[in-house]
Amino acid sequence: MTDIPRAALILGLAGVLPFLWGAMTLLSPGLAEWGLANLGPRFIGPYVQLYYGAVILSFMSGVLWGFATKAEDARAATGYALSVIPALWAFFMAGGGPVSAGMNLIFGYLGLLVLDFAFWRWGLAPRWWMQLRVLLTALVVICLSVGVFY
């Protein structure tokens, strides 16, 4: 973890907080009640996880698009095509009930990790990228799993 720039690590971990908050409000009725009363229903339980999860998958499409700009020729075209998959996945697969949508987001984040690895192997992502992405993906999948399996 020492290779990851401090700002990237801190901001990445901060980005996990809405997933963690959603999981905590599922596990703690008292916390869910507080969140409902003070933040509203959209910001507790699976609702915050699913909405934010779709937003972040779309954001990660933009990150991959940025990596694709470093490529040339056929690899650039492939990179651009692959970069839109997370956003399209979120758009088409994060609907429905909370269990199926949560499961689909888990698959989306695991698929994103595969794409991250491809861009990293092609030398388009920073050398520390996979350390950060494995950590963040593991945390997100654990939090989403609370919504799916609890």
Results as ranks from 00 to 15, higher is better:
Met1Tyr: 07
Met1Gln: 08
Ala7Gln: 14
Ala7Arg: 15
Ala8Trp: 03
Gly12Glu: 04
Ala14Arg: 02
Val16Trp: 15
Leu17Asp: 05
Phe19Pro: 05
Phe19Glu: 10
Leu20Trp: 06
Ala23Leu: 00
Met24Thr: 04
Leu27Met: 11
Ser28Thr: 15
Trp34Phe: 10
Trp34Thr: 04
Leu36Ile: 09
Arg42Met: 14
Arg42Val: 03
Arg42Leu: 15
Gly45Lys: 15
Tyr47His: 14
Val48Gln: 00
Leu50Ile: 15
Tyr51Ile: 10
Ile56Val: 14
Leu57His: 03
Leu57Tyr: 08
Phe59Trp: 11
Phe59Leu: 12
Phe59Pro: 11
Val63Gln: 06
Val63Asp: 08
Leu64Arg: 07
Trp65Arg: 10
Trp65Thr: 10
Ala68His: 03
Thr69Phe: 08
Ala71Asp: 08
Ala74Phe: 11
Thr78Val: 14
Tyr80Ser: 04
Leu82Lys: 11
Leu82Asp: 07
Ser83Tyr: 14
Val84Arg: 02
Ala90Trp: 03
Phe92Asn: 04
Met93Asn: 01
Ser100Cys: 08
Ser100Val: 15
Ala101Gly: 14
Ala101Ser: 14
Gly102Lys: 10
Met103Ile: 13
Gly108Cys: 05
Tyr109Val: 02
Leu112Ile: 06
Leu113Val: 00
Val114His: 13
Leu115Asn: 00
Asp116Asn: 08
Phe119Gly: 06
Trp120Pro: 11
Trp122Asp: 12
Trp122Glu: 10
Ala125Gly: 07
Trp128Tyr: 15
Val134His: 01
Leu136Ile: 10
Thr137Asp: 07
Val140Glu: 01
Cys143Trp: 07
Cys143Lys: 01
Cys143Ala: 13
Ser145Pro: 07
Val146Asp: 07
Val146Cys: 01
Val148Leu: 13
Val148Gln: 12
